Computed example of a mutant assay.
Amino acid sequence: MGEKKHKKVVVIGTSAGGLNALIKLISQLQDNFEAPILVVQHISADATGNVLLDSMNKKSNLKCSHAVNGTKLESGHLYLAPSDHHLMIDENEHILITKGAQENRSRPAIDPLFRSAAVVFRNDVIGILLTGYLDDGTAGMVAIKRCGGVCIVQDPQDAEYPDMPKNALNQAKIDYCLPIAEMGGLLYQLISMKSGPLKAVPNDIMIEAKIAKRVLSDLPSVNALGEQVPFNCPGCGGVLWKVDKGSSMRYRCHTGHAYTSATLVAEQTMKIEETMWTALRMFEERKNLLTTIAKEQSGSAAKSALERASLSQVHIDRIKAILLSNDKGTTG
């Protein structure tokens, strides 16, 4: 990679409560802001993100737009991740949009953006993590820090949903923790400062960045990140590897799905619930069929059908009790 075209790059990740948080942050910046800004906001696959984008354009002096694959990064511009696609930066400092595997149950996900920015910009990347559920972005913050960049999180007491900032504070070496109202001034200070010593990109971060970009999806690459564990990927059913690097447990399959321990539990819980609802429907259908058969027959055949219908009702009651226990993973 040749000489950098930008002194710095700012990457921002947020989830629940992100609309208000992003508007409050970028309204502090002027159109001459000397760095490109890339944003991942968790949104559903069928959403457009237009509401957020329109609100930012009304409240901000920056040029805000949906990120388009191959676009050259420009200072004073904000690029919002499109729905159902990951947003990353390629080695030529252009936008890379992919339909890769979900990470932390999300696409777009925060970690792929943060990781790619860390690989390309190293000590010239500024990562910001705002309000949201669970812990997407924490591993990305660790990658930014290990590559020499600066990490900023919203003060959890200032966040509408404090999980993401709290998890990052617990798992990563964060440089600044402050309310959004103070972030604009800090950003202007940071982009005017001389960068620290250049660090080499650790091999495991490079491998994960390449997997997210769909450059790698082979077993030796994932084997280099950690050891296989006796769990299956909820996304594709493949084997999972435990990623050894970093202070928190993470898991990845060779096709690209990635999970923190919290999102893996949440995804497993959701899959279990889906399975339980399917089982409930099948047992109820079985009971109804056996009851119908009992009405159409007599003697021992009718008695046998009623007994099996009664047993189906036992299973129905058990499944309903499990579903009503409300042991659900929380989504961001």
Results as ranks from 00 to 15, higher is better:
M183N: 11
L187Y: 09
T291A: 14
F283V: 11
E285Y: 12
I144E: 00
V142L: 02
L19W: 05
A159P: 12
K4W: 00
N288M: 15
R146E: 15
G49I: 04
Y188P: 08
L306E: 14
L29H: 01
Q30K: 14
S247V: 07
M141H: 01
A279P: 02
T131K: 07
A35C: 06
I191C: 10
C236S: 12
Q313L: 13
L311W: 10
H315T: 12
N20S: 13
A305R: 12
L80M: 15
L62G: 03
G132P: 01
L130F: 09
K63L: 05
A321I: 03
Q157I: 05
E285V: 10
Q102G: 01
I89S: 00
P234K: 09
T330M: 14
L290S: 06
A168H: 01
L73Q: 07
L25Q: 09
V40S: 07
G235E: 14
R318C: 12
I191D: 07
L87C: 15
C253V: 12
Q30S: 13
A262H: 07
I23N: 04
A302F: 09
A117W: 02
N20F: 07
M282W: 09
I128P: 06
N32M: 03
H94R: 15
N32E: 09
S192G: 13
S304W: 09
K213F: 07
L323V: 11
S75P: 01
D84P: 13
A21F: 05
M206T: 05
Y79S: 06
W277S: 03
A118N: 01
E208A: 00
A81S: 15
S304H: 12
G237C: 11
P197N: 08
R146N: 11
I211H: 04
W241V: 05
S217H: 13
V239P: 00
D84G: 15
R250A: 05
T330V: 15
L290T: 05
A209G: 15
K271V: 05
